[in-house]
Design a binder for these strands. Structure first.
Lengths: 239, 239
DNA sequence: GTGTTGTGAATTGCATGCAATCAACACGAC
DNA sequence: GTCGTGTTGATTGCATGCAATTCACAACAC
């Protein structure tokens, strides 16, 4: 792994960890000192992140941290749902391979077990996030579309947009169980639709799945803002 | 405009003009000499283009020009259609502003006149490309979605995927007139649907519009390959 | 008090230099 | 003849230095 890649990763982590405030300036020299790398690498890393959308670059005025409104985030989630919906439709229409379907079913089975165990512990929630991401990736891969993975990856770099950015909530049935159950029903339905070559159904389900995810985040975010600090019992995971 | 931006543009033009062969290596020193800039700028520019997908970067092995299969291109065009379809749907559902609708109608009127004049001359074809791009951009802007423009822009950097990449063909009714007429019917129908707040219709029309564009390019490309050189009377414009 | 202009410090944009890495080729062992 | 290994030339990765631009702030005119 090159120094540049390490630097991009460190910067991403620092930004998502809230190390810098939105709309902050990001002077090359400061970052270079903080991360103990040369300005050249910082500049290359910031250039990369600018194209991912996390930071902005105005000529001769350096880089600034971007801020995202809640509307932008939910719009981007809906767009991810539309693109993933296309992937699900293609997987259904073109016919996912037996191996791909088997993988999806296996992930679903592990998720079934996880749901029955519940999400009271942090490792349980982390494992769910991984499985959820794996299922979404599997559906995208089954589409056989070369560009959709790139587009989804780009969108997923926005905060809260990724399929890994799941908000668990301790109220409402205990650690978001009702939300997760509903989302997991969607997962089963989408894979069933793909398996049955029902393209339009798979697409519609995937879109709705994303829209509901956006609504959930909107609710959780509204609840958070009232206290201006993460609600006790709310675990916000960003990816 | 900074030197970096100029360099990115020059490199893009050279690549799309076929100055380098697919899968060619792109040594920094050679490019720096060719373009009369320093290696630093070339490296920054190539890094930017790698994130756009035109070139690939393997650590310690430099940059290579990517090649695109016809399937990748038509898939990407279909994806653009799906995303633009979402934009059209949002424009319809959320309600495009009167100013936005007026702009679209004005562009349509100019395109009407262009169709009636035909496309026998190169300037006529170039003007059509500009108007077509303007209409697509207007629809995207009318969606009020913050991220769709970025995603479409990213896709449009792939060769032949952009709405500006229109293939005119001297056969078949004279300079692609029948194709253009059909596509222009779509334009009218989409704007009508947006104006009438018919979201699903606008979305479906936009998708179909893109799919047909992909089919046209597939046909023209197949015809080109047989001769291995652009058919006489075929003007291939990439953007 | 408000607006304008000038100056200096801070910061960016770019070029160059050096060390690390890789690919190619020759050479030798089997 | 084939495979492995050492060496060399080319190329990349990164650091640093310098000029150009911008921003902050103060001095000044009105």
């Amino acid at each position: 792994m090159t120094l540049l890649e390490q630097t991009v990763q460190m910067l991403r982590e620092r930004i998502l960890a809230g190390h810098y405030a939105p709309d902050d300036r990001l002077p090359e020299t400061t970052l270079a000192d903080d991360l103990n790398v040369s300005r050249t690498v910082v500049r290359l890393a910031l250039g990369a992140m600018a194209r991912e959308g996390l930071v902005e670059n105005r000529p001769n005025r350096g880089f600034r941290l971007r801020s995202f409104s809640l509307d932008e985030v939910t719009d981007a989630i809906a767009l991810r749902g539309t693109v993933e919906g296309m992937a699900a439709r293609l997987a259904a229409e073109r016919g996912a391979s037996a191996a791909a379907l088997a993988e999806m079913r296996q992930i679903l089975a592990r998720m079934d077990a996880a749901v029955s165990r519940g999400f009271a512990t942090l490792p349980a929630r982390s494992a769910w996030i991984e499985m959820n991401a794996a299922l979404h990736d599997a559906i995208i891969a089954a589409s056989g579309h070369a560009t959709i993975p790139d587009v989804v990856a780009q969108l997923s770099r926005m905060p809260l947009v990724s399929a890994r950015a799941i908000v668990f909530d301790a109220g409402d049935g205990g650690w978001g169980l009702s939300r997760v159950v509903r989302a997991h029903d969607d997962h089963h339905a989408v894979v069933d639709a793909i398996s049955a070559r029902q393209g339009a159904r798979a697409e519609a389900l995937m879109r709705e799945h994303a829209l509901r995810s956006g609504q959930n985040k909107r609710q959780s975010f509204a609840a958070m803002k009232s206290g201006d600090t993460p609600l006790p019992g709310l675990s916000l995971v960003r990816g």
